[in-house]
Design a protein around this nucleic acid. Structure first.
Length: 286
DNA sequence: GGCCAGGCGCGTA
DNA sequence: TACGCGCATGGC
């Protein structure tokens, strides 16, 4: 058994399962009532308990800031929810998604994962990412009965692969996009580390230079990895939700929808977006 | 078996 | 600027 470290992290108003399965991150699996995943080179198991999250990691660590940052445990959820518009759709979404949180992910993994996400269901994205890590990620320490566990492969590793090798991970037409982006990062043509300090428009423009990255994927990375609170990804679910909740019985044009999402949801629009996304996906009939 | 999936890039008007 | 289409792959 590999050496592990355990701790208890205070986490009020936190729905761990909803958060880890809500289409932000793609490497977390439920097992025996706990959630297991990989952060950097750490294998991690998280378990929800009353008002807290218990964490186990391998190899052993002395600090936990990398995990509390990922989980965004310092964030006061009530204060954020209070900034949402007081309308019926948002009230319903908040009521349906108690404790849903935004994570703070490593930018490259987030970017690569969402390049692989286009016209894929969340379960399929998980499968592709799992294949990519198993084939090309560095092996890391984990409990013996978990089998071989891998880190997310670095851009330099993917940049050195052929498109055919990437396609073996079932990513289809996304392979050249991921390859092109990995190469631009490996070559230093775009520097993800420099993006965090920029303004939202500048950061967005920089991400849009990458192949396979359009407005939606850029906004996902800006929100889920760089923490720009106003970034508001519009995918098919959100488009449908905005259309039906806010513009029933009339077709809304794309520019109109753009103006609406930028003006209606307040300073934490991205958080509101995640609530609408998760809520919409729970609705059986529209 | 057809439709759709946390879209993007490119060609056309 | 604003559509329409093709792009792999798999779940339902």
């Amino acid at each position: 058994m590999a050496p592990v470290t355990e701790t208890v992290l205070t986490a009020p108003d936190y729905d761990l399962g909803a958060t880890l399965s809500s289409g932000q991150a793609f490497r977390w699996r439920e097992r025996d009532g706990a959630w297991e995943g990989v952060l950097g080179a750490q294998w991690v198991r998280l378990r929800q308990v009353e008002g807290a999250i218990t964490a186990t990691t391998a190899p052993a660590v002395e600090r936990w800031d990398w995990l509390t940052d990922f989980l965004q445990l310092h964030v006061n959820l009530r204060q954020i929810l209070a900034t949402f518009p007081d309308d019926e759709p948002m009230r319903s979404a908040v009521a349906a998604c108690r404790g849903l949180r935004l994570l703070r992910q490593e930018p490259w993994e987030c970017l690569a994962s969402f390049i692989l996400s286009s016209t894929k269901q969340i379960v399929q994205i998980q499968q592709i990412v799992a294949l990519l890590c198993a084939r090309y990620g560095q092996a890391i320490t984990a409990p013996d009965d978990r089998g071989q566990v891998h880190a997310f492969p670095r851009p330099e590793r993917l940049a050195a692969l052929s498109a055919a090798q990437l396609r073996e991970c079932k990513m289809g037409f996304r392979a050249p996009y991921l390859q092109g982006t990995a190469r631009m990062l490996a070559d230093g043509e775009v520097d993800l580390n420099a993006i965090a300090a920029r303004s939202l428009p500048e950061a967005r423009a920089e991400l849009l230079r990458l192949p396979g990255v359009g407005p939606k994927i850029a906004d996902c990375v800006l929100l889920f990895a760089f923490g720009f609170p106003e970034a508001f990804p519009v995918d098919v679910w959100i488009r449908k939700a905005l259309q039906q909740f806010y513009f029933p019985r009339r077709r809304v044009t794309q520019p109109r929808l753009e103006r609406f999402k930028e003006s209606h949801f307040g300073p934490h629009a991205g958080y509101a977006q995640q609530y609408l996304f998760h809520y919409a996906r729970t609705l059986k009939a529209w």
